[in-house]
Structures are given as structure tokens and as C-alpha cells.
Nucleic acid binder design. Structure first.
Lengths: 326, 326
DNA sequence: CTGAAAGCGCTTACAG
DNA sequence: CTGAAAGCGCTTACAG
């Protein structure tokens, strides 16, 4: 079936293309349209099943009303991260929808690809949201996107480059909050359990934890800095830890499980986010993930629409949530 | 910054726009390009930071290489369905990416909206995947989309209208499979636990269950047809059920929890999908959700590219998965 | 091997 | 209140 164009609608209604366009887009109150003309154009459009060409409109207006999302990948939505991915999509979808934008997940880029080629196909997007903390660590990406002629906002983490728009939780404050909660409960041997990736984020979280210990007059014992691998139980036992700050919710579940299994009494607190599952009922420090992402989308749309946001960085604090009662 | 067009690249390289276009799109082997020209054009493009306009290209070619997804909504990604939503996105993203398509989540439509208005803005998509079983039940939607001039594929459920492309699990076969497993274990009082929505799907699941009971020579006792509300415990007890087929994984968790809490011995089997959490370690009948969605995306892309798929419906069987060991 | 020209389907000043 | 015309940035026959 060949496309029904505005030309066909205009012919059918017996008006010019310009008039049809104006009648269809109920705008331009400065130039009124006679009700009968509008009626005829509307009828013609309905009768013919007219659907405006988004491409033509985008070409003309320079806007697609579409946000590109960069950083989802084939394993971004994998099972261990399902709650994380779903919260992100929820926040993004809601924020974009509120302002009349669609959301395009950009495919064709996998972690460890050379990011310099990505500019060739960023789709028909008005701006870009970069949400993957793994790939944000790659300075080549920031460099390539810095040359892209449309707005870019980094969410959750951000490259070190200055002048970049970024929205993220305050990982250092979260680390301090978590450690303070354990200190207040009387603990003195508090471990920090992480894994050797998400380096930037985990480092900031560890930094806040270390700050809190230092403020409490405690040395940071390197034996308390633990990796969540298959020797965790042994290391936990050797460390003499009575409590642990865990760098994310998965590590926390693992750590609590290992401690229970080996009969190690351990007060665990997890870095997590609103909407995560918390199956073991642990204490947590959480940030409002959907809201963080929504805020990033809002900043991006502001930039697209030429409204200069007040600040280049928005930082969201963590909240302490005690272990839920049984 | 004003846009860098192919015109600017051509000027910079000292060639015509047509030549620049041909050099940039390494195609058209019939018409060769001199290596030195290509070199100069590539250099100019890189130097200027040229990014082709997707809108112009789409207008010219009539293709955006973008799949629209219709049916996500503000609560589609909500916590109770996080695993479901994430699996869907995983399958969709992978399948689209493999064939060089992006994925656009279409906003601006909420359940219970009148779907006749949606055609006005289906974005710049080449085709549509409808993935929400809730809204697929609305015949106005199928009617409106039937008039949309591009391919549409329904996934997971499908409107009753004939001639529609649809990809879904075989809910009736799944119901039979689940009931047969319980019958084989010697049960004679087998409940079916559901909720009063997802009517079409739950009805088919119940139908398969009823078929299996009938084949086993059992009457379908209406007292075994249960609703998972706050009177479930009482109804379960009155029904004399020793086993239950649960219409989805959430209902199954709830039912198993209620039974345990009230000391009702109950063998529970859940309708579920690959990648769901199964925190209670229940027996399940599962379908490969990501694969089902991926298959729907493949059919859609075939239609977009003019390859007529062999069948209009693809039905995926459920597999029985016994309760995982402790 | 290269270039001039048409045309994809809209929107928007501008002139009536 | 309406219409003729320009132009958004590409790609692709077509003619050289």
C-alpha cells in the first residue's frame, strides 16, 4: 500500500497542502482556519487513514521527540540485574512520557567495542542518555560523545571529564551513612565487601566508608577490605569482622548467605536502590533509582528544548533503611 | 552549533554531494569510487565531525531501522513484574540488535486510553510490536492498528481478529502439562488458582488444566476454581485440594505462602517463564520468554523487509520443570 | 569515475 | 482565511 500523504488529504478535502497542514496541526492561533475547512480536512484524513510521516516532520522541524538511551546491552537486562534494569526503564519511561518524548534503546554497541564508531548511527534521537556505569568508565566514549552535536547526559556515574551533564547518587555519602549506622550499633570491626569491577563507583563507596571509620578514630585495616569471591568465608573469619558494608545488593545477599552458612555472626548493610528485592531482609542504604534516572531525562529534555539547566551535576543522597521486621 | 551536513563535507573535500554520499556509504559496487576521493571525503567527514541526519536518510529511504514497542506503560516495569519486563527487554534488544534495528518504547499511551488516537504518533518506526497482554484484549486497539500502514506483530497474547501476526506460548498445552504432572504424582483434588484479570490467557491456562482432569476421568469441581484474594486460605481449606496449578508465578508464591502459613499441605505448580525468580523453589511450567519475544521481533523485521514469514502464528510450548532440590 | 538534478513529505514564512 | 513556494538533508537514477 502506498503511503497516504498530506497531499492526498489536501486533494480529497479540496484545499492546498499548506491549509491541510495547518488544519491538522491545531496550532498557529495567529492564523485562524475556518471551521468548515478544518472539518473537511479532518474527515479526509480519517477516511484515508492518514498517518503523518515522522521522518518528514523530523527533517523539517529538526526534532524527533525521541530520547536515545545508550548503554543497555545484551546482558544489561540479564536476570541478576532485572530489578535494576526495570527500575531504570520505569523512571525513564515515565519521565520521557510526561514530556511527550519516546525512548529509543540504541543497539549495535557492546561493551569493549571501540566507541569512536558509534556516532555513525545514534538513530533519530534528539539527545542521549548514557546509563551504563560499565561503559562510562571508558574515556574513549566520553571523547566520542563529546563530539556528537546534540546533548548528552550521563546517569548513575559520569566520566571524569569536566563540563559534562551528570546525575548520580552520592556514593561517598552513602558509604559514610552505611558505616555510621554500624558504628552507632557498636561495631568496631567493619568490613567493606566489593568486587573488582564498577571500579569508580565502588571506590567512592569505599571512600565514604573509610571516612566514617577515620572520623570514629578507627584505622582502616586492609584485612577488612574483602572481595566477594569463593574464599570470602575464610577471609571473613580471618578478618574478625562483626559487620560488613556491601558494595551492592548482590554482594550483600552473597555475604549474608556465606556468613549464615559458616556460622559467622555478621551485621550486614547493603548498598541498594528503591525497588530492589532484598530477599534476605537486610539493612540498606538506598537511592531513588527511578527518580535519579527520571531527573537525568528531565535535564536532557531541558537541554534539547534549549532550557539551560541550573546545575551540570545533580547528586542524590542515600537514605538509611533499617532491616525490615520479620 | 549548526549542523554539519554532507554538503559541508563535500565542499571540504572538493567533490559534489553525490560523490560524497557514495564515498561515505561504502555501497554501490557497480559505481566505483577512486580511493583518493574516498580518502579525502572520509578525512573531511572526520575532521568536521559529520553525523548523517537520520531523519533525512529515513525520509529518503523510507526506513528508520527502528522497531516500535507498544504496550509498555508506567507500571509495566513495576517491581512485581520486574523479571518479566526485563526478560522481554532482553529478548527484544538482542533480536533487534542482531538485525541492525533499534528499539523505541512508545510513550503517551496508558491503559484504558482510547486507542484510536495512537496512530497519530507511532514515532519514526518501521513496524510495531505489541507486547502488553492487558491492552491486547481491547478490540479497539486491534482495529486501530489494523489501519496503520506498517507491519504489526502481537506477542504473548493476540487479539481474536484473524489474519494477525502473533507469537505466544501455548497456554492450553501448559495447563495440561501442569495438571498432568500433579495427576502423575497421585493427586485427585487439584485446584486452579487465578485472578480475575488477564482473562484470555488465564482462561486458556484453565482450559488446559480442565482438559487434563477430564482425560483423567475427574469432574472439574467448581470449588477447586479459586481466586487468589484474602480469603484464599479459607477457600483452599474448604476445597480439600491437595495440589494447585497457579495461573502465574506471583499467584503461585502467594498460594504457597498461604498454604504454608495455615498448615495446608499443598503441592504447588506455577505458570512461569525462563528467567523468573522462583524464590520459593516451586515446580513450574515455563516458556522461553526472551526467545518468544525475539521470535516476534524477527517476524516483524521479516515483514518490514518484505520477507513473508511462513506462518502467521508461532506458538511455543511450555516445559515442565520440577521443583529445584534444596 | 564524477556531478547536476529530482524528489522523499512535511512546515512555515510570505503574499495575497 | 487560503495557497504557492522554499527548503529541511539526504540518496539515487541518469547523464556525462
Amino acid at each position: 500500500m502506498s503511503r497516504v500523504t498530506i497531499q492526498a488529504v489536501a486533494d480529497q478535502a479540496g484545499v492546498s497542502v499548506s491549509t491541510a497542514s495547518r488544519a491538522l496541526n491545531r496550532v498557529n492561533t495567529r492564523l485562524p482556519i475556518s471551521p468548515s475547512t478544518r472539518q473537511r480536512v479532518d474527515d479526509a484524513a480519517r477516511r484515508l487513514g492518514y498517518v503523518p510521516s515522522g521522518a518528514a516532520r523530523a527533517m523539517r522541524t529538526g526534532r524527533t521527540r525521541t530520547l536515545g538511551v545508550f548503554g543497555t546491552s545484551s546482558n544489561f537486562f540479564a536476570q541478576v540485574r532485572a530489578a535494576f534494569a526495570a527500575q531504570i526503564m520505569a523512571g525513564l519511561f515515565a519521565a520521557a512520557g510526561r514530556r511527550g518524548y519516546h525512548v529509543t534503546l540504541l543497539t549495535g554497541f557492546e561493551q569493549d567495542d571501540d566507541p569512536s564508531g558509534i556516532m555513525a548511527d545514534l538513530g533519530m534521537t534528539d539527545g542521549l542518555l548514557v546509563i551504563n556505569r560499565d561503559i562510562q568508565a571508558d574515556p574513549r566514549l566520553a571523547n566520542a560523545l563529546g563530539r556528537w552535536p546534540r546533548p548528552v547526559v550521563y546517569a548513575l556515574d559520569h566520566p571524569e571529564a569536566a563540563g559534562v551533564y551528570a546525575t548520580a547518587p552520592d556514593d561517598r555519602q552513602g558509604g559514610r551513612l552505611a558505616a555510621d549506622a554500624l558504628l552507632a550499633a557498636g561495631h568496631r570491626r567493619i568490613a567493606f565487601v566489593s568486587r573488582p569491577y564498577f571500579a569508580g563507583i565502588f571506590d567512592r563507596r569505599r571512600g565514604g566508608y573509610a571516612d566514617a571509620l577515620a572520623d570514629a578514630g578507627l584505622d582502616v585495616d586492609p584485612r577488612l577490605d574483602l572481595i566477594a569471591d569463593d574464599r570470602l568465608a575464610q577471609r571473613l573469619a580471618e578478618s574478625g569482622a562483626t559487620a560488613a558494608v556491601c558494595a551492592n545488593e548482590g554482594i550483600a545477599d552473597q555475604t549474608a548467605g556465606v556468613a549464615a552458612e559458616h556460622g559467622i555472626g555478621l551485621d550486614v548493610i547493603a548498598f541498594s536502590f528503591d525497588g530492589a528485592a532484598n530477599p534476605k531482609g537486610l539493612a540498606q542504604v538506598t537511592h531513588p533509582l527511578a527518580e535519579v534516572i527520571g531527573s537525568a531525562a528531565d535535564v536532557l529534555i531541558d537541554l534539547i528544548e534549549g532550557k539551560q539547566p541550573r546545575r551540570k551535576r545533580r547528586i542524590f543522597p542515600y537514605r538509611y533503611e533499617p532491616a525490615p521486621g520479620p
